Computed example of a mutant assay.
Amino acid sequence: MTDQTAPPATDRPTWPAVFKGYRRCCPNCGKGKLLHSYLKVNDACSVCGQELFHHRADDGPAYLTILIVGHLMAPALHVAYAQYRPEPLTLFAIFALGCLSLSLYLLPRLKGVIVAYQWARRMHGFGKSG
């Protein structure tokens, strides 16, 4: 056994990190960019130097996006159809555009949330760095 102990989890509060991740900012300082291009995570924060390449977001952001968009749009689709009875093509066009727009908006933000959550909980190698 080694004498090194992990720092307490309280020095990385989860909710502030998650909010910073939602804004696509570094979970450590909140100033540097978490993502470059659309969904690529930076290897390190350009402001504080926090290593970010440890993340294992994988398919999590896509699953959460589908879950949220589905739970928002399905009831809206039901209400719109039951109340207004629009033409099928109109209904399709509006909800296809809504689903696409909401998905493209949420996907990078949810990726930031997952990376920030992993950082705050010291998962997948984030515990080694400051």
Rank of each mutant, 00 (worst) to 15 (best):
M1Q: 09
T2V: 13
D3M: 13
T5I: 06
T5F: 05
T5W: 03
D11Y: 08
R12S: 00
R12L: 01
P13L: 00
T14K: 11
W15T: 06
P16H: 03
V18E: 05
V18G: 04
F19T: 13
K20A: 12
G21C: 02
Y22K: 08
R24M: 12
R24W: 07
R24T: 13
P27D: 03
P27H: 01
P27T: 01
C29Y: 07
C29F: 08
C29W: 06
C29V: 10
G30E: 01
G30H: 00
K31T: 14
K31P: 03
G32Q: 02
G32R: 02
G32K: 03
K33I: 06
K33C: 09
L34W: 00
H36T: 10
Y38R: 05
L39H: 03
K40T: 14
D43N: 11
D43L: 08
S46D: 15
G49M: 00
G49C: 01
Q50Y: 02
Q50R: 04
Q50N: 01
L52P: 05
L52A: 06
F53R: 10
H54I: 02
H54T: 02
H55W: 04
R56K: 14
D59P: 01
G60I: 03
P61N: 05
Y63I: 13
Y63S: 10
Y63K: 06
T65P: 00
I66P: 01
L67H: 10
I68Y: 10
I68V: 14
V69S: 07
V69E: 02
G70V: 04
G70D: 05
H71F: 15
H71T: 12
H71E: 08
L72W: 12
M73Q: 12
M73K: 07
M73G: 06
A74M: 14
A74P: 04
P75M: 07
P75D: 06
P75K: 08
H78N: 12
V79R: 15
A80L: 13
A80W: 08
Y81E: 15
Y81H: 15
A82N: 13
Q83G: 13
Y84G: 12
R85F: 12
E87H: 13
L91F: 14
I94Q: 07
L97C: 14
G98S: 15
G98I: 11
C99T: 11
L100V: 14
S101K: 07
S103Q: 06
S103M: 07
L104S: 08
Y105T: 07
L107K: 07
P108G: 05
P108T: 08
P108Y: 07
R109S: 02
L110R: 01
L110V: 07
L110S: 01
L110W: 01
K111R: 06
G112H: 03
V113I: 09
V113P: 00
A116F: 01
W119M: 05
W119C: 01
A120Y: 00
M123I: 14
M123Y: 09
H124C: 11
G125C: 04
G125V: 04
F126E: 00
G127D: 11
G127E: 11
S129R: 11
G130F: 12
